[in-house]
Write a protein that binds this DNA or RNA. Structure first.
Lengths: 328, 328
DNA sequence: GCCAATGCAGAATAATTATTCAGATGATCG
DNA sequence: CGATCATCTGAATAATTATTCTGCATTGGC
């Protein structure tokens, strides 16, 4: 080690500052250096563990709701995050992302293949993952880009960031989410580039997906769905969307033109992935989530406590099977 | 407890700030309060021990020098404080005061009678004592005021502060340190007010005193001693001063007019106090300290490491007894 | 010996955190 | 019911802390 920054010096500075409560200026006089140096000494002392700051655990999760959801909805992994009252939806997403990141990080094993859809909450989640380049992940884009105007929420972008943060390679689909017609979609699917991704999807052991409703989803926000189209989908029984696929209350994919034009993980593929986690925030997704759960499209959930509560309530109100398409 | 500042809320804020490294502004957004509130929440969290900051011990003492001094000079209590190189004498005093305060605090038992002289280092020491009003001390002024212009270093002022900080009553001498003549001094000694203090001094179980030299003492600094007077004292064999009493190299009080005019603890009284601690800083006091130690006027020492080293060196150079009055 | 290259220190400055202040809220008591 | 008192809050501001930038010193070639 160097001669400056001797442990004894660091301890002295740290002691004066943290224990005796002197300001950095006072410490500076004491130790005969500039305040700037004191700031650096203290940073070093924290770094070296001479100063240890411990915080009584704040448990950001609602374990009670988690187990209730696991029991009631037969899910395998549920993470319910506490929510502060009065948070805007954007802040709520940030909170969910922030606190779920650690849990997701532990869920991911070093050599996993992770299928990844886009979405705003997922975006937050990915951005709160720890920085470390030591995993050998394979990350696969589970769904094409929503529109040409690339946004930070797109699976493409989110996947890139995730691979960068945790370490690993990112396999991009490099296509729009919806093609003009089935023929074009199928043609693309044959492309080596695309089919390779498709292959990874089949072997993925974890997926992170969003779940949208017809009222609130990234498709609405980015104006990819017109209101007529939305009505059309509703008439076809759609109550939610997952990876760009519209599903009815039983979790079956609705037979509409969208089905043939979408470029994303197939419903059957999703079903085969050992752990598909829906990442959502807010309390307006219950119907869509229930549908996805019933269809076994998702096996776990990351959600805030208000969303969890709403979901539990909805689950009681529509007691499995025989659900109305919409209460109207 | 109130509803705000719930532990959970504090934990959340503390966690975000200290563990996750967010700034207070970011935490504020998260928790939906102002940054000011976050600052308050964090203060509260530290207060309540939700955040614990621990610093690897910095040992401000030089235990090696302490035991060497105890052995070589037959002292009972020695506290040697580390000194940073290049500190001004004022800063050195501050450092000694700062770090010795805790030790002194533990030395003082709740119902002690403490005799207290003035002095600059003692002043620093007293000012670094912890604030707590729970001891039932009796603090006695061991020496009159140096001059009419009351200064923060005077025993009077220092005693007042000490009583206020630790809790207890302060018995003040309310007289100047030196009287015009013996008659006046003796007359004052008969005053109930003054003799009461005198009585306390006899029963004191701890004393904190300074030790000055003829070159450097509060008397010189405050211009109470003229240079002729100083020469006169030197001729009388004086090598140091304690509680306003000038002593020769053997620790005997010099027979000068000062002896009869000083208003302070008597040498015989000091000798009877179980623990008399000299509180000094700097390396120019060695001869005076040696004298005081030889005369058994002090039984312990609080000093910085350079002073301690100088003292040890001086002790070797003048091997007990048969010492020259001054090397000249 | 001379010249980058490197690293470190402190002055200046930017950024962050603590405190003050004035208004709002609400509890308590007459 | 007010009136009073005691908190509590966030905006503004003061104070403190972190960072940038520049110059100085040292190191290690050539």
């Amino acid at each position: 080690m160097q001669n400056n920054y001797s442990d004894d010096r660091l301890r002295l500075a740290a002691r004066l500052y943290y224990v005796d409560g002197l300001g950095q200026n006072e410490v500076a006089k004491f130790v005969k250096v500039s305040q700037a140096k004191v700031s650096r000494l203290l940073a070093m002392a924290r770094e070296r563990g001479i100063v240890r700051i411990s915080v009584a655990d704040y448990d950001p999760r609602r374990q009670d709701l988690e187990s209730e959801l696991v029991d009631r909805l037969k899910l395998s992994t549920v993470i319910v995050l506490k929510a502060i009252d009065g948070l805007s939806t954007a802040d709520l997403r940030r909170a969910v992302g922030h606190f779920s990141a650690a849990a997701v990080d532990t869920l991911i094993k070093p050599k996993d293949i992770v299928a990844l859809a886009g979405g705003r909450t997922i975006h937050e989640l990915i951005n709160h993952l720890p920085e470390r380049r030591n995993k050998a992940l394979t990350i696969v884009q589970a769904m094409g880009s929503v529109d040409s105007n690339v946004s930070a929420f797109d699976a493409q972008e989110v996947g890139r960031v995730m691979a960068q943060r945790l370490g690993g390679s990112f396999h991009s689909l490099n296509t729009p989410a919806y093609m003009p017609d089935k023929r074009t979609r199928d043609a693309l699917l044959k492309l080596e580039q695309v089919s390779a991704v498709h292959g990874f999807l089949t072997r993925a052991n974890l997926a992170l997906v969003g779940v949208g409703t017809l009222e609130n989803s990234v498709f609405i926000e980015r104006e990819v769905l017109s209101s007529e189209e939305r009505e059309h989908l509703k008439d076809a029984g759609a109550v939610g969307e997952i990876c760009g696929r519209f599903i009815d209350a039983e979790g079956k994919e609705c037979a509409t033109s969208w089905k043939d034009r979408v470029m994303s993980a197939e419903v059957e593929q999703l079903k085969k992935i050992p752990l598909v986690l829906a990442v959502v925030s807010g309390s307006d997704r219950s119907q869509a989530l229930l549908a996805a759960i019933r269809g076994h499209l998702i096996k776990g959930l990351i959600i805030d406590e208000t969303g969890a509560a709403a979901l539990l309530k909805a689950a009681s109100a529509t007691p499995e099977k025989k659900s109305r398409t919409k209460k109207k």
